[in-house]
């Protein structure tokens, strides 16, 4: 039984580089074990049945393999990139299911990428800072951030679920996002 790697002690950007340069399968295996179980959780939180979540998590990882050469370590962390791939697949799959109305639109939002390049180590440090900030957010702020990123609910519904006034949900979310956003630094 291989030891399950954690993204904290693995150079994920380095593994992406190996995949891009030489289709390195063992690098892919490691990334799969880090991200696929969490992508599955992300999709389940968005209401996907377990089987569908599994299928979309696999598709997310296949997309990472196929598009490896598009990943730019100076413009996004691997985590942010995987997040956007999973988000786009989730949106697409929901749209397909809903689009009996034949919504004549197929928008694939681009994958995560800043305009302003940073160094790889800056990006890695930012991710470490973000993870530690998330773990120290006041619980009531963490709750609204997670609901907003992971449950696809309008703010009004989040407010109802938490039995809070809408204004309170909005201000907590604004505070928490401003705090996390601030840690990413001034890119522009």
């Amino acid at each position: 039984m291989p030891v399950r790697p954690s993204e904290e002690d693995v150079d994920t950007a380095g593994l992406m580089a190996l995949i891009a340069s030489s289709q390195d399968r063992s690098a892919f295996r490691t990334l799969f074990m880090i991200f696929a179980p969490r992508v599955k959780t992300y999709l389940i939180r968005h209401g996907a049945p377990a089987e569908k979540a599994e299928e979309l998590a696999q598709e997310t990882m296949l997309t990472l393999w196929r598009k490896a050469t598009y990943f730019d370590p100076q413009r996004a962390s691997v985590g942010a990139w995987v997040f956007t791939i999973a988000r786009n697949l989730r949106i697409d799959s929901l749209r397909r299911e809903r689009s009996a109305v034949a919504y004549a639109l197929t928008v694939h939002e681009p994958e995560a990428s800043t305009v302003t390049p940073q160094t790889e180590s800056e990006i890695a440090q930012t991710q470490v800072r973000l993870r530690s900030a998330i773990s120290t957010l006041p619980p009531e702020q963490l709750e609204v951030v997670q609901l907003s990123f992971f449950e696809d609910k309008p703010h009004a519904e989040i407010a109802q679920q938490l039995s809070l006034p809408l204004g309170t949900v909005k201000s907590r979310l604004r505070l928490a996002l401003a705090r996390l956003r601030g840690l990413v630094g001034d890119l522009a």
Binding site: V78, F83, F149, R181
Partner: peptide, 12 residues
């Protein structure tokens, strides 16, 4: 992109 970095950290 900054917000997506937040999304990535939340995912992790």
């Amino acid at each position: 992109a900054a917000l997506e970095a937040v999304g990535g950290a939340l995912l992790e």
